[in-house]
Design a protein around this nucleic acid. Structure first.
Lengths: 111, 111
DNA sequence: ATGTTATCTTACCCCGTGGTAAGATAATAA
DNA sequence: TTATTATCTTACCACGGGGTAAGATAACAT
């Protein structure tokens, strides 16, 4: 009943805008708040900042300060380790799915 | 802006009760609605039914009818294939994380 | 046929939260 | 110092959605 770490992770990942922020940071890191906000023309900077605060307190990104700017980077290792316990529950089923995933990645590389 | 398949997936996975339903179905399938509802003493059957309908329309579980009972099973292959496109975006980062995941699974088997 | 059981449907409440706007804070510039 | 820029904070609104309760359906029992 009381929310655990996995609950917090999926709650954070539930929002499309936050996942898109992660996508952008995966493609290019680091970025400051205004650079990220520029990628979302129909959103306002404070909203992006709020999402980033959430992502940071969830530990999926980390921020360093340069002057007055907060510079965000993806923490992919943290993402993987937060996700692992949940994925592990279904190992029994998608042991083959991981193979398939690896295959997808290899197919991608060939293009 | 318009929601895509990944948005729908994470929206469905966002709710802790729905993930727990998936957990139960991973542990034991198939189960009918009342059997599943019995696992959630502080929730009412109609709520569980509603969640199951959501999971079914998201394609993560499938239901067969036996008399007047709807019998639900986990569709782990579907889960994996829905999750793969998103996971694939981060392959570059957690190529090693997949190894780590496999390692976790192997450690589990030893116990 | 009626009664009963299992599930779905509908309507409703209410809390959480994404989004915005405006003010506060902090750091650079002049 | 003052002005400006970048970010955070706060307050607020509005919508979505989880949860419940009660009614509707459908299938079996008698």
């Amino acid at each position: 009943m009381r929310p655990d770490a996995t609950d917090a992770l999926f709650k954070i990942l539930a929002d499309p805008t936050r996942r898109r922020i992660l996508d952008h940071l995966a493609e290019q890191s680091p970025l400051n708040v205004t650079q990220l906000a520029a990628k979302f023309p129909d959103l306002v900077t404070s909203g992006i900042s709020k999402h980033l605060m959430g992502l940071r307190s969830a530990g999926l990104v980390h921020a360093t300060r340069d002057g007055r700017q907060q510079i965000y980077s993806l923490d992919a290792a943290a993402m993987a380790s937060r996700l692992a316990p949940w994925l592990k529950k279904y190992d029994r089923f998608w042991g083959t799915a991981l193979e398939r995933l690896r295959q997808l990645a290899e197919d991608e590389e060939k293009e």
